[in-house]
Simulated scan of single mutants.
Amino acid sequence: MTTTQQLVDRQVSSAAIATFIIFGANGLVFASWAARIPAVTETLHISSGQMGTLLLCTAVGSLIALPTAGHVIGRIGTSNSVRASGFLAALAAVAISVSLLAESVPGTAVALFFFGIGIGLWDVSQNVEGADVEHRLRRTVMPKFHAAFSGGAFVGALIGAGLSGLGVGLPQHLLVIAAVVAVLTFITPRYFLPHAAPQAQSADETKPDRGPSAWRDSRTLLIGVVVLGATLTEGAGNDWIAKAAVDGLGTSESTGALLFALFVLAMTGMRFFGGSVIDRYGRVAVLRSSMAAAAAGLGLFVFAGNVWLAAVGAALWGVGAALAFPMGMSAAADDPKHAAARVSVVSTIGYVAFLAGPPLLGYLGDLTGIHLALLAIGAPILVALLLAGVAKPLSSRK
């Protein structure tokens, strides 16, 4: 006979698998674009700085979506939010393909703007669902969900490298990815957890946490600053490792894509096994160690004199960048009652770096070369390291 608790356990297990798949699909569509940025610059005949402007279009779209994501999720739920955002991202990927075939810079810019909106809402929605599953399981699993994102990105990067080597264009590539994403984001969220209003002692306590109050919470803001510095590390690697390898080391486009794939693989492995490390040593210690590893890997990648040392640097950089964002999401969602609003706030602050930082590196790259421009992220890495203490779980605070 099946007990109520067994049914609940099955529901949580199904939700965990569904959330894992959604994170993976998000990584797949993102890397399918990021791994082939060098091809975009050639197709559209633009410089690194102009490519930075196109990337900024994605950033603006996401930064418009992120602050309102908590409200959207509160209105339609995480399942429908993922469906809507996945459909928009897939549609935008189709528009990017058409614009590239037409060699239209304005068309690509508009498509990337809507791509950014879709990815931004999708990101907050999946993190809110992941935090809910983590609370129900009562163990650290958020890094594994982000490992799924990295795993999807790794597969996307390998596909990008292979198709580049075969001479298959990015437009055709994105059209297939868009179809896959549309199907996954429509079907999979049906297995998400149902979201009911939290139980509370009074009517006031049942009211959802609105955006403005979350923006006034000092701990949430400081977590956002940590995530801002930490995610710049990840965002810069995602967007510029392939290009920096081509420009700084003189590698082929396919080799640059493989170095990006190695960066993502290192992140995936660390995220998959990182939950037990966090449970054993705590968020703060792991966050500080992560930032130190990221700084060391960045330095080795930039100053490496050959592809093999650069590969070691890219791997160490990926290990360091792996856990900061999922730990930030878990820290923001420590109180389930306020999770949606606070995850939205932290995501917004963090994505200023994750999305706007890489385009700014592109402008700097026009002056110094993108290879050396990557050193600029050393300062925010240090800030994240110094402020890591704010990620201490609420349950362990006095």
Rank of each mutant, 00 (worst) to 15 (best):
A340D: 12
G165V: 04
V98N: 09
L222T: 06
S97G: 15
G365P: 01
S330C: 11
P336G: 09
P212E: 08
R283T: 01
A331G: 00
V168M: 12
G165S: 10
S202P: 01
L100S: 10
S347N: 07
D247A: 11
L387D: 02
V352N: 03
G299L: 15
E253F: 13
F354H: 01
A95F: 03
T3M: 00
V40Q: 11
G211I: 13
H371R: 14
W122G: 10
P212I: 14
Y363I: 14
L63Y: 02
L54T: 00
A161E: 05
A388I: 05
S32D: 01
A59F: 06
I21E: 06
I96S: 01
R219E: 04
T220D: 06
M267L: 06
A384Y: 05
I377M: 11
E129N: 11
G362R: 12
L232I: 06
G52Y: 07
D239M: 06
G313W: 14
L287I: 12
Y351N: 10
S97V: 02
L382I: 15
V40N: 08
A257I: 04
A203M: 04
L309V: 14
A356S: 11
A324W: 01
A296H: 10
S344A: 14
A356P: 01
E234V: 00
A294T: 13
V155Y: 07
A242S: 03
A179P: 00
P393R: 13
P171Q: 09
L364A: 07
L88P: 00
V124M: 04
A153P: 00
E129R: 12
L258H: 11
V312Y: 06
P194C: 12
R138T: 08
L385Y: 15
G120K: 13
G313Y: 03
L166G: 02
A324E: 05
S347T: 10
S218W: 12
A148P: 02
R10G: 12
R283H: 10
S395H: 11
Q201H: 15
E205T: 06
T3F: 12
G162F: 02
R139I: 07
I46M: 04
F20L: 12
E253Q: 14
L355T: 01
H338E: 14
S254P: 01
E205F: 05
A261R: 03
A353C: 08
G313P: 00
A147N: 01
E205Q: 10
L170E: 03
I278R: 08
H45Q: 15
V225L: 09
E129Q: 15
A65C: 03
L262W: 08
D247G: 06
T140N: 09
